[in-house]
Simulated assay, not measured.
Amino acid sequence: MARTLALFDLDNTLLTDDSDYLWGRYLADAGLVDGPAYEAQNARYYALYKAGDLDIHEFLAFALRPLRELALPRLIELRGRFVAEWIVPRVAPGARALIERHRRDGHMPVIITATNRFVTGPIAGLLGVPALIATEPERDAEGFTGRALDPPCFQAGKVARLESWQTRYGYAGAYTYFYSDSHNDLPLLERVDVPVAVDADPQLTAVAAARGWSQLSLRGVS
């Protein structure tokens, strides 16, 4: 019998905010990028994401540039403080209990996110989820290149990344749950066995209601 996967979007699902957007704000606050200009661009891309109009390749060229420009030891130091100061307070109150419920049921928890692995790897660890499918920053002998490997883990690319992961780790044909807040995840929500809208945006809320999908909130619970 195929094993069961419990897939979780990260930003605004297990977290109460968006780690990609917050990382940009954090770098600007730390004076490591051109603060006002960078923050304005960061906010513009986040608005496009929420509207469903984001050019993911254009955004990644922007978002991954600091990984190329900053030394890796400095990046790792910054990331540690970012997770401790900006992410820990934004873990949704019900996130860990939901993950643990699936674990008790014998399901494999997996975080699947458009945010890049450099940012999200420690966040998955914080939440006790060993399996992470994310946008992969490209690296060469000198470090990060500022580019991402194709396909980015976004919209239809999330489905492609999942299918590749399932084949690699022996989960092809697995029964799947997927929890997400975003209409950008409709390609994957439409593919899984149990789609669940979590603190969903207006677009996804409407789709979930029309299709009879479960809806829940991980905020305001403990």
Score class of each variant (00 low, 15 high):
Ser217Ile: 10
Arg211Phe: 01
Val194Asn: 02
Glu136Ile: 12
Arg219Ser: 13
Ala209Leu: 09
Tyr46Ala: 12
Asp29Gln: 14
Gly170Cys: 02
Leu162Pro: 01
Pro93Arg: 13
Gly106Pro: 04
Arg211Met: 05
Ala95Val: 10
Asp55Phe: 05
Arg139Lys: 15
Asn184Gln: 06
Ala71Ser: 15
Phe178Gln: 00
Ala209Tyr: 01
Asn12Cys: 13
Asp11Met: 06
Leu162Phe: 02
Ala160Met: 09
Ala28Cys: 10
Glu58Val: 11
Pro151Gly: 07
Trp23Asp: 01
Leu78Pro: 06
Glu100Leu: 09
Gly24Trp: 02
Leu132Asn: 04
Thr16Gly: 15
Phe8Glu: 01
Tyr21Asp: 06
Ala131Lys: 08
His57Glu: 14
Gln166Met: 11
Val91His: 11
Phe118Leu: 06
Leu204Lys: 01
Glu100Phe: 03
Glu85Asn: 15
Trp213Ile: 06
Arg81Asn: 13
Leu189Asp: 00
Ala40His: 15
Asp18Gln: 06
Glu142Ile: 08
Arg90Met: 11
Met1Arg: 13
Pro66Val: 08
Ile76Met: 09
Asp193Ala: 12
His102Tyr: 08
Arg219Phe: 05
Ala71Arg: 15
Asn12Met: 13
Arg79His: 08
Gly24Glu: 03
Tyr175Arg: 10
Pro195Val: 05
Ser182Lys: 00
Ile111Gly: 00
Val221Met: 12
Pro89Lys: 12
Pro66Leu: 07
Asp17Trp: 14
Pro36Gly: 10
Tyr177Trp: 14
Arg25Ser: 13
Pro187Met: 04
Gly128Glu: 11
Leu149Phe: 13
Trp213Phe: 05
Asp105Asn: 09
Lys50Trp: 11
Gly80Ile: 10
Ser164Asp: 14
Gly212Pro: 02
Asp181Phe: 01
Ala95Pro: 08
Pro130Ile: 05
Met1Leu: 13
Val192Phe: 02
Leu75Lys: 07
Asp150Cys: 07
Leu132His: 03
Tyr46Gly: 04
Val91Trp: 10
Ala208Asp: 04
Phe154Trp: 14
Asp105Leu: 14
Ala61Phe: 07
Val194Leu: 07
Ala97Tyr: 11
Glu58Ile: 04
Ala210Thr: 08
Arg139Asp: 11
Phe62Asp: 05
Pro195Met: 08
Tyr179Trp: 03
Asp55Arg: 03
His102Val: 07
Thr145Trp: 09
Phe62Gly: 10
Thr13Met: 02
Thr113Val: 08
Ala30Glu: 15
Lys158Ala: 05
Leu149Ile: 13
Val110Ala: 02
Asp29Met: 10
Ala208Trp: 02
Ala114Asn: 02
Asp34Pro: 11
Pro152Thr: 09
Ala131Met: 09
Ala200Pro: 06
Phe8Lys: 02
Val192Pro: 01
Val194Arg: 09
Gln215Val: 13
